[in-house]
Each structure stands twice: as structure tokens, then as C-alpha cells.
Design a protein around this nucleic acid. Structure first.
Length: 307
DNA sequence: CAAATTTGACCACA
DNA sequence: TGTGGTCAAATTTG
């Protein structure tokens, strides 16, 4: 594992911890205050996380960030399996929840194989969409538990869902943070890095429906990197943010605040970082917050946000 | 009993 | 020939 990868992991774990704290905080807070006063907090938290993730993708930029465009390849659909698919690697950090061997991402999967992977301790599981035959849905995914950290799952998706039978309705109690790490081979446009540097954060507009039913749409609308191409950081951040929001929604009772309220609140949040220095300062403060530990963090947040 | 999983066989590919 | 992805029979699960 490279140095960068290690830093990445540490950062993500910290962020994930922060989210757990946020969940708890919000859960507590809803009993003692109005939803209205929660809004600025939510915005601030989201912004901080957004910037942290920004940093993450920025750090990533000496690796291959660009996802291989998989267009105009559909000629030889003879070899219709995983071979030439855009396969994105995803790290899923499962929150404190129960140990499971898979990750609930809203779709229903059917395991069709498992394989020992050379050099890895844990086997890799092979899944296809449950509706592969009934709806001709050719989505696939592979899951492999990390050797070093049992709470991390390496998930590779291949193929798009054409089915609509995802079980998006039931909310997960677990909290997932998903992140793409790399596209693939070395020859891939690493020199276009300058173009990829995120420039500015756009207002966030997302609907919960889209998040849970149509990830692809979420990717586009939640985008806060520049990018004509979809790049990895984009996806990563979107999934991350989407999960943040989802959990905030779960923490708040549905009656106290509607999703559209949150959405507009987020959209009105100040546009964030213009450059990496600013982003770094945000990141640092987040880092400090995490360092404070659970109880202190709560009070620290009170100070920062002027409650 | 149907649907999902396990597990070794099979097979493609480098 | 080794590795990794899929198949499918056996088995488990609900």
C-alpha cells in the first residue's frame, strides 16, 4: 500500500467517524431544538465534508484519476461479460454496524461465485443482479473484503442496471461511504491532470429519489468538480455527500424537515473553495475536530457554529 | 418448494 | 500454466 493510499485510508476513516458523530449529534439535537436551527449546522457540516473530500480527490491527482471512457465500444458485444466493462473500484467503509459479507447498496444481488485471489487473504465474491434473467439486467459486482481492515470492502461494479427493481425504499441502518479509487491502467491520460483539478464547488442540488434510484443522475447533478469528463473524484464525492445527506435525513424525523428544504438549504450554502489552500484549511479544521474525540467534538462544534 | 448460496469444475486469457 | 471469472450441481435457507 502506497503512502498516498494510506493517507487516504486514514482520512476516510476519520471522515467516516465524523459522520457517525454527526448522526449522533443530529439525533440528539432534534430532541432539544427546532429543525430550523439545525439547518445552518447541516450546511456547515456538509460543506466541511465536501471540502475534505475535495482534498482527497486532489491528493489523488498523481494517480490515474480519469475514468476510462467506455463509449463507442459496443461493437463486439460477443464477449459480453466483465472483460471490457468499465470497472470501477470502490472502497466501501461500513460503519460500526454488524459484520456482513456484503454491502447494501440498494440493489439486490445474487451471488454466483467466489474465488480465492492470489496474494489476498479474503476470497472475492461474484454477484449479478437478481433480475438478470427476468429483466435482462446485466449489472455485476465483485466484492472483496480488505485484508488489512475488515470494515473495508473493495467493490468493483461492472455493467449498468437496466432493471428497476432496486429495493431503494428501505433505508440502511448502516452507513456507507463509497469512493472510487482508480480507473485502471497506466497509459490513461494522466498528463491531463491539470484539467482535472477541481476548480470550484458548485451548489449542491440533489433529490433523495435520484440518490437511491438513479445513481447516475446523482453523479451529474451533485457534481462539484469541473469536468467535462466524469472523473473519479466526482463520483467519490457524490456518493459520499449523498450518504451524508441520507443519514441526516434518517436522523431527523421526516416531519421536521423535508428533503426539499434541506436541498435548498444546501443550494444556498456559500460556494466553497477556489483553490487548494483554502481547501486545505477546511480540511485542517475538520482534522482537528476529529482529533478532539467524541464528546469534545460536540462542544467544539457548538463553538465553531456559534450556537 | 422456490430461491439463494456454496463450491468445485470449467474455461478464457495472459 | 497459473489466475481469475463463470457455470451449475449440490446444498442451504426461508
Amino acid at each position: 500500500m502506497t503512502q498516498v493510499a494510506m493517507e487516504e485510508k486514514i482520512l476516510i476513516n476519520g471522515l467516516e467517524q465524523g459522520i457517525e458523530l454527526t448522526k449522533r449529534l443530529m439525533s440528539n439535537f432534534k430532541h432539544t431544538s427546532s429543525a430550523e436551527s439545525n439547518k445552518p449546522l447541516i450546511s456547515e457540516i456538509l460543506r466541511i465534508y465536501q471540502n475534505a473530500i475535495f482534498m482527497l480527490s486532489f491528493n489523488d491527482d498523481d494517480k490515474n484519476i480519469v475514468k476510462r471512457s467506455h463509449d463507442t465500444d459496443e461493437k463486439d458485444y460477443k464477449k459480453r461479460k466483465i472483460s471490457d466493462k468499465k470497472t470501477e473500484k470502490v472502497f466501501v467503509f461500513v460503519g460500526t454496524g454488524q459484520e456482513k459479507d456484503s454491502v447494501d447498496d440498494g440493489y439486490s444481488w445474487r451471488k454466483y461465485g467466489a474465488k480465492e485471489i492470489s496474494g489476498s487473504i479474503n476470497p472475492r465474491g461474484y454477484y449479478r443482479c437478481t433480475h438478470q434473467f427476468t429483466q435482462n439486467c446485466l449489472a455485476l459486482k465483485h466484492i472483496q473484503k480488505s485484508d488489512t481492515d475488515p470494515s473495508i470492502f473493495e467493490v468493483t461494479y461492472a455493467g449498468d442496471h437496466t432493471c428497476n427493481n432496486n429495493s431503494a425504499s428501505q433505508a440502511t441502518t448502516n452507513f456507507h461511504v463509497s469512493m472510487f479509487e482508480e480507473g485502471n491502467r497506466a497509459g490513461d491520460v494522466t498528463e491531463q491532470r491539470e484539467d482535472i483539478k477541481p476548480i470550484k464547488t458548485e451548489p449542491v442540488v440533489v433529490s433523495l429519489e435520484d440518490l437511491e434510484n438513479q445513481r447516475e443522475n446523482v453523479v451529474r447533478r451533485l457534481s462539484f468538480s469541473n469536468s467535462n469528463h466524469e472523473n473519479v473524484g466526482e463520483w467519490e464525492s457524490n456518493v459520499f455527500l449523498g450518504n451524508v445527506m441520507k443519514n441526516l435525513m434518517e436522523s431527523l424525523s421526516p416531519a421536521t424537515m423535508s428533503w426539499s428544504e434541506i436541498t435548498s438549504e444546501i443550494a444556498n450554502a456559500p460556494a466553497s473553495v477556489e483553490n487548494s489552500e483554502t481547501a486545505y484549511s477546511y480540511f485542517s479544521s475538520l482534522d482537528n475536530i476529529i482529533d478532539l474525540g467524541h464528546e469534545d467534538w460536540w462542544w467544539s462544534a457548538r463553538d465553531i457554529l456559534n450556537w
